[in-house]
């Protein structure tokens, strides 16, 4: 991935890829919660530097590569 945007990055879920496995919520419980059907909801705000490694671990752990990072402009 190229350089980070000035406004930081948000963690996003691609809903069409997500299969509700729930691995992201286990790997990053402070960033991801599950709705009542087991699908992830992530915080809208930009990630802090401290949160970034946790978010990357969750993204790498997703079997459907449904998590991605959106530059905040």
């Amino acid at each position: 991935m190229s350089g980070r945007a000035a406004g930081g990055e948000r963690l996003r879920v691609d809903p069409a890829r997500c299969d509700g496995v729930g691995q992201c919520a286990r790997l990053a419980p402070d960033l991801v919660s599950l709705d009542r059907w087991g699908y992830p909801r992530v915080a809208e705000r930009p990630l802090t530097e401290a949160e970034r490694p946790v978010a990357e671990r969750a993204a790498k752990g997703c079997p459907f590569t449904a998590l991605w990072f959106q530059p905040v402009r």
């Binding site: 809903p15 069409a16 997500c18 299969d19 509700g20 709705d35 059907w37 087991g38 699908y39």
Partner: peptide, 9 residues
């Protein structure tokens, strides 16, 4: 039926 919130919600 592409995504959970749609499929169940």
């Amino acid at each position: 039926a592409q995504c959970g919130p749609c499929l169940f919600g």
